[in-house]
Write a protein that binds this DNA or RNA. Structure first.
Lengths: 340, 340
DNA sequence: TTGTAAGCGTTATCAT
DNA sequence: ATGATAACGCTTACAA
């Protein structure tokens, strides 16, 4: 491998000049710059990343720490999120470093060793200690989702609450009064927000939320299937279902079909749709009504945000919430008792 | 941040001694070693990764390049694979670097800049140029799956061919003669291997493979749904289905149910099961018969393999193929025409 | 057993 | 516009 010294010797220039030419400094002569660029290309020169990092103090990479617990039941959404991140980063020659290191101190170790310039945090929990730690350390980070800590931090989030409020309202307007909520894990903030939106809509419409209609768990297909079974085994089952993800909705419809219930005649369904590339809701047997927010977009946007943040943007300018579309397809209709 | 110099000054030792103590050199006095370790812990010292890399020439990370094309339709299996990789790497303090860089030269650039010590290649295509390139460059890499290049390279693969041969044989023994294959993408080696196994079983049983019974595509739920529709719209539809993944099987069963066909009475199904954490086949409405090979294991095993490889193990010792279990559950039974 | 000092390959600060 | 040269923080001969 040719290094800077080789290149400089080859050109009869100093390393300094070559380095400047390569890094687009204004002070370097246009002709020599051309020469350097050509020679670099010809010798297939690639600057050594470690050396550059050591000299500049920047890593050119951002970290994602996968806690072991999450690791056991990995979220299928994560891959589409990553896809968005990597494509956006590629344009800036940035990488993402994944580590399975354990616990919160992984962040400390990772930042202190200079492996990364910052972090992307996924699925924040209530009062998430990571946010406090990274804020103290003054390491740039962007949270995918909001948190309830009273600190100022950068985040990208979708409007979960209003999305689920709107979805619930739609069902209420269709005459549904008993609406099941197949929510995400109870410790996830996004699940709490969705529950808030759901509750808000009910209360505003003078209905008393029934806790037996709300389920919480990791969003697997199986969970959708089982939870639906539980809900419909009740004395007064729901006439509509709100699902936290398409996989959950898939499990729910599977169960309904097994139990001889049809969508939407017997049960209306609205699911949140992250637009997973391998599971499209428009192609469900009964095309699904959804609250739609492509999770891939979260990846691309967060990439931009953390780049801005590292360049010194104010945190207040790196707090983005995006609306969620409510798309009505065939899985929603008037409640059975409202017909006749 | 405390650095080595600070630590050495603090202890009244030379940087060399401190470094040796920290890196477990045998020549260092047991007492001083204790002192150093304590002080390091106390000052929260973390060696700078870039400096260490520059000095040692090792990166402590392995790369995965996500080509843009694959990026658009990301494979849900990838996340479980990553999960296996990161957990196994964590124990060795290794990271994985993801990049969305473009094309084959991304590998060159990546290895030459010293960002990684090697690569993990996913979904090899026929005569995959990456394998040739990396072999020439003498960069350690492990392929997830085998390839048809005539080079010696490290790989981890499941026995796709025999798995699908066995599955097909099972169906043949049950009296099925028209067996549909909902295969993966036609350019993927694993899909070719599965087709080989399927064909092999048919031919061995004196049946002529019918190309109209074989479909190829990215393994989405929708594909399972559509392809099944196509297969059963034929004049003489299959009585059994072989699916390349659980998501495909999910789509297939959805379609069958819509068309009023029951599993297994009308149609038997065997699916390949990568044991995705969010989609378990034992919980299908009709528990699915499967060829079972946890993709998470591929991650953990490949992590070990590439570590061995980097430590100088012979390539011949880093070629691992693992058998696939055939698990018979409720989705398979005798062919309709074989009954009565 | 420990210390000295020369790298590792860049970038950045001076001069010139 | 270019060249010396000193960092950057660590590892590792070589000495002692």
């Amino acid at each position: 491998m040719a290094n800077l010294k080789d290149l400089a010797d080859h050109l009869g220039l100093s390393q300094a000049t070559v380095s400047r030419a390569l890094n687009d400094y204004s002070t370097v002569n246009a002709t020599t710059k051309q020469r350097v660029l050509q020679a670099a290309n010809h010798l297939n020169y690639r600057p050594n990343t470690s050396a550059r990092r050591l000299a500049t103090g920047r890593a050119g990479a951002y970290g994602i720490v996968l806690p072991k617990a999450d690791n056991l039941l990995m979220d299928p959404h994560f891959v589409d999120f990553l896809s968005g991140l990597t494509t956006a980063f590629a344009a800036h020659d940035l990488d993402i470093v994944l580590t399975g290191a354990e616990g919160i101190q992984a962040y400390q170790r990772f930042a202190n060793t200079g492996k990364v310039d910052g972090f992307i945090l996924s699925s924040p929990k209530s009062d998430d200690p990571r946010i406090r730690l990274l804020s103290e350390m003054e390491v740039p980070f962007v949270v995918h989702g909001r948190c309830d800590v009273d600190l100022d931090y950068a985040f990208y989030d979708i409007r979960n609450r209003s999305a689920f409020r709107d979805a619930t309202n739609l069902l209420l307007n269709l005459g549904h009064t008993r609406i099941g909520l197949l929510n995400g894990p109870s410790d996830a903030i996004f699940a709490r927000d969705r529950l808030k939106g759901y509750t808000e809509a009910l209360v505003t419409n003078d209905l008393i939320p029934d806790p037996t209609l709300v389920m919480h768990d990791m969003m697997t297909e199986e969970y959708g299937y089982r939870a639906t079974g539980t809900l419909f085994a009740q004395p007064s089952p729901p006439t509509a279902l709100l699902c936290a993800s398409t996989l959950v909705a898939l499990g729910a419809t599977r169960r309904l079909r097994r139990d001889g219930l049809t969508v939407p005649e017997d049960v209306s369904i609205i699911s949140h749709d992250d637009c997973l590339s391998s599971l499209k809701t428009e192609n469900f047997s009964v095309p699904l009504s959804v609250t739609r927010a492509p999770i891939r977009d979260a990846g691309t946007e967060i990439a931009k945000l953390i780049i801005d943040l590292s360049r010194g943007a104010a945190i207040a300018d790196i707090q983005k919430t995006v609306p969620v579309d409510l798309i009505v397809r065939a899985s929603t209709c008037t409640a059975p008792q409202a017909r006749s």
